[in-house]
């Protein structure tokens, strides 16, 4: 059961020009202290070194429907990066 594959989690993002882009969610987490939720997704873009680019957005559910928001605060962004760094070391 442990080795069972789970379906990739996909998310639809509407671009400024109205096109809908399917992206793969890599990770979603919430800070325990401030209950801020973040989603990490990828468009499977790779650079010349084979590094994968991932995008991080804050999810705002205050209005009921989820909305993607940018991470404005530097301190907040550093905290998110720390979490990603830690999780990438997980075995």
């Amino acid at each position: 059961m442990e080795n069972q594959e789970v379906e990739k989690k996909m998310m639809s993002i509407v671009a400024d020009d109205g096109t809908i882009e399917e992206v793969e969610v890599i990770l979603a987490f919430e800070f325990k202290d401030n209950k801020k939720e973040y989603v990490v997704y990828t468009k499977n873009e790779k650079d010349e070194n084979d590094n994968v680019t991932v995008y991080v957005s804050n999810v705002d559910r205050s209005s009921g429907e989820p909305k993607l928001m940018g991470v404005e605060d530097e301190e907040e962004w550093n905290r998110v990066k720390d979490v990603l760094r830690e999780l990438s070391k997980a075995e």
């Binding site: 998310m11 639809s12 993002i13 509407v14 671009a15 400024d16 809908i20 969610v25 979603a28 939720e37 989603v39 650079d47 084979d50 590094n51 994968v52 680019t53 991932v54 995008y55 991080v56 957005s57 804050n58 999810v59 429907e65 989820p66 909305k67 993607l68 928001m69 940018g70 991470v71 404005e72 962004w77 998110v80 990066k81 990603l84 990438s88």
Partner: peptide
């Protein structure tokens, strides 16, 4: 959690992973 269809956020931050 479920996300459904979302709009593109402003000031989107990205990071590269090995």
């Amino acid at each position: 959690r479920d996300y459904g269809v979302l709009g593109t956020p402003t000031n989107l931050r990205s990071i590269r992973f090995k």
